[in-house]
Amino acid sequence: MSDGRGAGPLQRLIEELKRLPGIGARSAERIAFHVLKSPREEAIGLAQAIRDIKDNIRPCARCFNLAEGELCHICADPRRDAGLVVVVEQPKDLISLEATGLITGVYHVLMGAVSPLDGVRPQDLTIAALRDRVAKGDVREIVLATNPNLEGDATALHLMEALEGTAVKVTRLARGLAPGAQIEYANRHMLEEAFRGRHAL
């Protein structure tokens, strides 16, 4: 029996939307009907934006960030300090760090983290490309901004191993208590790391 939506373009859009993360059947229907009711130029604009992202976005040839040309906008910016390289697991982490406005350097995106349980090995990441960047000699400091979890820590250890013997200074983001947290509810690990990472005022 027909449910009133038919099997045509509307149903096809619903099916495509359902494949997106966090979008269930009801949400997919709601978005599809919104697109159907919205002005033509708005809907075509959305379709064009999706097409553009697939046609024009590629990994930056230097840092593997998302880029529209050969280099991403950060690597192409001459005001950036190319001697300071912040290493992140994925482009989303880079966006979060950029939002702080504190990073004057450039980035290197690993495109993942070492995960022995999922079979992700160091050679599956862009560690060799990072070594090549360091070997060129203009990198002064590498800041490891991998996640503070087991996989991020394992990735950081592999990076340390890969950078052994180079003259570059390697640092890691501080860890410990998050702003808004209360010491009473913090666990031992958080407190240990916060205490170890204390700094002079």
Partner: peptide, 24 residues
Amino acid sequence: KQQSAYPRIRSDLARVYAATYATE
């Protein structure tokens, strides 16, 4: 409620792989 995160395991690759091997 975390009781231990075994932080020193995370500072040595051999220990990370041994612990991961055991869990796997």
